[in-house]
Amino acid sequence: MADKGYQPEMFGEGIWLRPLEPRDALAIAQSTEIVEDSAQPVPNVPTSETAYRNWVAAQDESSLVWVVCRTDEQEAIGTASIRNIEMGTRTAETGMGLFYPEDRGKGIGQEVKALVLDFAFEVMGLHCVRCTIDARNTRSRRSVEKSGYVLAGSYTADIPVGLGEYADTLVYQLLASDWRAAKLG
């Protein structure tokens, strides 16, 4: 696995984030729906534990991926990521997903996003992040808007969803300055 440099564990009220490891492959592969706040959380999404192990091992230095765990537990209940990191422009793409429907709507997503954004802006020094969402996913839209992301536009027919059918992708962004202002306000 590539050297990720400084990628710490991060702790919230009811959850904590730890860097993705090969042992998480099974949990991810078994999750029924890894897509929540990202239209395409990983390129060429693997479909088996072996494929996920290979995917974990192949993560490069432009990606930081964490698994989400409940406090005092090790089992992954979701993932969070900062991808396509461009330090020249100080931009990146964020994404997150919770594996199980019963974990949604409980504020876990907001907590995860707050930790990831705090790391992105205050530790990494990024200027701006974006995230992409399947336009049909109203839950995710509400969730990222609640975290302060602003709609920047949409891509037509961006996500293959069936034979010859495609869904649009919404693109949201969040500037560090807006994030800090919202925290203070």
Partner: peptide, 30 residues
């Protein structure tokens, strides 16, 4: 048409933050 405008996403040679704009043409049949 302008599809996406990412504010302050690009840096010029003087490190000024500029918007990155994605233009999109859509197949008329679609």
């Amino acid at each position: 048409r302008q599809a996406v405008r990412l504010r302050e996403w690009w840096r010029d040679a003087e490190d000024n933050a500029l918007d990155l704009i994605t233009y999109e043409a859509v197949n008329p049949d679609w």
